[in-house]
Structures are given as C-alpha cells and as structure tokens.
C-alpha cells in the first residue's frame, strides 16, 4: 500500500499510470482519488491520461471495424503497424475481464488474418478527411462547450445542450411541427443553446451532397439565419446551433439547398413556443 499519498511517491512509483490502468489496490485507488482533490497538477495529468486511454480504446474498436481495402498509397504516415494489436495478454485477467480476454484470445488470430493486406495508410487518409469535416463542425460546437464547462460552477441539473431533431414528413405520418420550448425560467438552462439536427434524405436519384446551404425563414418570409458550405455529419444530418434568445415565439421554416441556393431539397418547419 502506498499511503500516505504524497506527490513525490506518486511520481516515483508511477501511481498515476497504474491508476489509469486499473492496477491499484482499492486502498491506494481511494487514497489517490482523494489526493486529486488537493493536487491540480495530478488532476490535469489524470484527465489527460484518462482521455488518452479512452482514445486508445476507440482506436482499437475502429481498427477492428476497418474493412478490407485494395492496396494503395502509404502517404498518410501511418503504417499497418501503427494500429496493430499488440500480443494478447499473458497475465491472468481479473474478475469480469476474464471473458473479454478469452474472447480476444480467440478473435485476435482471426482479426490478424482479416486485417492482413489492409492498406492502413489509405484508410487513415480517408478517415482523416472525414475528421477534418467533423473538426469544422466542432469549431461551432466548441464555443458552446466552453460555455457549458463554465456553467459547471453553478449547480443546476439542466447543463446539457438541448437537441431538437427536425425530420422530413414521410407518407402516412402526421406532419407534427417540432416545437422549441424555452425553459420555464432563465436560471434553469436559459443560456444553453439549442442544437437543431436537420435530417437529410438521400435517394439513388439524389444522393447526399458534400455541402448544403441553409436558410431559416420567419413567418413573414424574412431570412433570420443563413449558412453556406454546411457539411453533413455521419448521421446524414446538418447541425445548427442557435442561442436560446435568438428566436421569438412563432413559426419558422428551415430551407435546405444542395450547394448553391436553388430549389430547396428540404423544407423543415419549426415552431418556437412562448
């Protein structure tokens, strides 16, 4: 046991790394987590380490899903070994992990066979191209996240983005107009933005475009918001973030254009409650 949890001990014994890997004894884990309340530096390192661990787990899952592709260039700088799995663990797994490890032992050889010949460079280039699209969307979301992070200093349960999906009406469906309801009082989330997801539909005749233009019209036909070059997410939707006080009560319509404004590919009504 490594109590008391002094900072030099933590660094010398690699406590943080063992904590992140789940390899601390319960008493040490408790002591370390209590230490985090008093040590901003350890906390920052733990936050970064935890996100790194999750990122590695994500990448491992992504690698397992990589489909077989034709050989191509190796220009992305990442070779097949970049994301290859290390050898299966030889140490006995603890408790619930034993099943997962057993499954890996069975599946890993199959995975190696399936992944052999995959052009990771090409796959990564495609993935990074998609990610650059995502990053542009994130630029918009990021400022709102900053607001949310600051809002943590206030105790209120409604510190989440409000998501309103707008979908096209299909045959046989009632054409109910989605309603944006403002919070009952400003202190219960009045400063959190609306995230509006505009559903896109693709057909063989009209596949998804690379980018769309948007207009939000009010009841009088006035343009209240417009955007160009909005790229669809991997969920085939366009994300729009609007501050809560941006629209007054009334009826609105989102018009979606493929590329330059011309004929709208979708008209999505929206109502803002009073």
């Amino acid at each position: 046991m490594i109590r008391p949890m002094e900072h030099p001990t933590i660094e010398q014994k690699g406590v943080l790394d063992h904590y992140l890997a789940g390899q601390l004894e319960p008493e040490d884990e408790a002591a370390f987590e209590e230490h985090l309340f008093t040590c901003p530096d350890c906390l920052r390192q733990a936050q970064a380490g935890e996100e790194l661990r999750r990122g590695l787990a994500d990448l491992r899952g992504e690698t397992a899903r990589v489909p077989t592709a034709a050989p191509g260039d190796e220009t992305s700088g990442a070779s097949a070994s970049t994301l290859s799995f290390p050898s299966p663990p030889t140490a006995p797994a603890r408790s619930w992990r034993s099943l997962a490890v057993a499954a890996m032992l069975v599946l890993a050889p199959l995975g190696v066979l399936a992944l052999r010949g995959v052009d990771y460079g090409r796959q990564l280039a495609v993935a990074e191209d998609q990610l650059s699209t995502v990053r542009r969307s994130l630029d918009t979301v990021e400022s709102e996240l900053e607001t949310l992070r600051h809002s943590r200093t206030r105790v209120r349960p409604a510190a989440a983005l409000r998501l309103l999906p707008l979908g096209v009406s299909r045959a046989g469906e009632a054409a109910a107009v989605p309603v944006l309801e403002p919070p009952p009082e400003p202190s219960s989330g009045g400063d959190t933005p609306w995230v509006i997801s505009l559903e896109l539909t693709a057909t063989p005749q009209r596949p998804l475009a690379d980018a769309y233009s948007l207009r939000l019209l009010d009841g009088d036909g006035g343009v209240r918001f417009h955007a160009e070059g909005v790229e669809p997410t991997s969920y085939d939707s366009l994300l729009v973030i609007l501050p809560q006080g941006f629209l007054e009560a009334g009826d609105y319509v989102f018009e979606v254009f493929a590329g330059d404004p011309g004929e709208a590919v979708a008209r999505l009504p929206l109502r803002v409650g009073s």
């Binding site: 390899q23 380490g49 590695l56 663990p89």
Partner: peptide
C-alpha cells in the same frame, strides 16, 4: 496498448 488497454 498493453498497459492502458490490456492492463498487463
């Protein structure tokens, strides 16, 4: 990978 994910 081995330390953080496989917890060796």
């Amino acid at each position: 990978f081995r330390f953080y994910l496989q917890e060796e």
